[in-house]
């Protein structure tokens, strides 16, 4: 019952990863007790008969409850069309913004206009219907200021970290507020443009590498580097 990969190794689709009583996480195909990679990934072998496959590239697929940063691309009679950096365009229904009675269409564009950025939550999504968004929660809605940073959706989770550790660390040390959209869009809101630029730099650099083992350590290092460079 061998494992055919070592940690940090790149595996291609169809490559045999492990055989036997292994627990494989991430995108794989099984044929009996043989596990094959499904997408181009990095393998991480964990001590107790576990192999984790981390995809190197991924488009954003909406999932219920995800916080996303969307851009309004059209105003409809009872909804807004929102681009969420995904193959699936999202809908934000009036009822998810206002209680009834709903305002008239011409008033909708007075609320959110084409080009506005929104922090929203995915209310529901299955592949047969477009994803629905909601802004009916505190801190959601139009984002009026800040800096938008676009990163690869496959790597955005490291900006959040385990239990939000990385995001908390960044906002604390850099004095900014972070809105981390699962769809690869991050908004940094700081007290000054300098703060924002610094945080944007760290977020961008954090998502440059295809794989980092410890995002929190990586973030700490980057903050140090960035601060040194900024003060010089």
């Amino acid at each position: 019952m061998p494992v055919y990969v070592s940690s940090g190794q790149v595996v291609v689709p169809g490559e045999l990863v492990a055989e036997g009583s292994y627990e494989v996480h991430g995108p794989f195909v099984a044929s009996g007790k043989r596990y094959y990679a499904k997408v181009l990934s990095v393998a991480v072998v964990e001590k107790t008969k576990q192999v984790r496959l981390i995809p190197l590239k991924r488009v954003y697929i909406p999932s219920e409850g995800d916080l996303v940063v969307g851009k309004v691309i059209d105003v409809g009679p009872t909804f807004w069309l929102v681009d969420i950096n995904s193959p699936y365009t999202a809908l934000l229904l009036v009822s998810e913004v206002f209680p009834k009675p709903a305002p008239q269409q011409r008033e909708l564009s007075e609320i959110f206009r084409v080009g506005d950025l929104l922090a929203a939550k995915v209310l529901s999504f299955d592949f047969a219907h477009d994803p629905l968004l909601t802004v009916k929660e505190p801190k959601l809605g139009k984002v009026a200021r800040g800096l938008l940073v676009e990163v690869a959706p496959a790597r955005v989770s490291r900006v959040i970290g385990k239990r939000g550790q990385v995001a908390d660390y960044l906002s604390e040390t850099l004095g900014v507020e972070l809105i981390v959209g699962r769809n690869g869009r991050v908004i940094v809101i700081g007290k000054s443009p300098d703060n924002e630029a610094l945080a944007a730099y760290v977020v961008t650099r954090l998502c440059e590498k295809p794989y980092v083992e410890d995002p929190l350590e990586e973030a700490k290092k980057l903050v140090e580097v960035a601060k040194r460079r900024w003060s010089a």
């Binding site: 291609v12 689709p13 181009l40």
Partner: peptide, 10 residues
Amino acid sequence: ADAGIPMRDL
């Protein structure tokens, strides 16, 4: 494969 498309094999 480089685009991250899920595949059975090359």
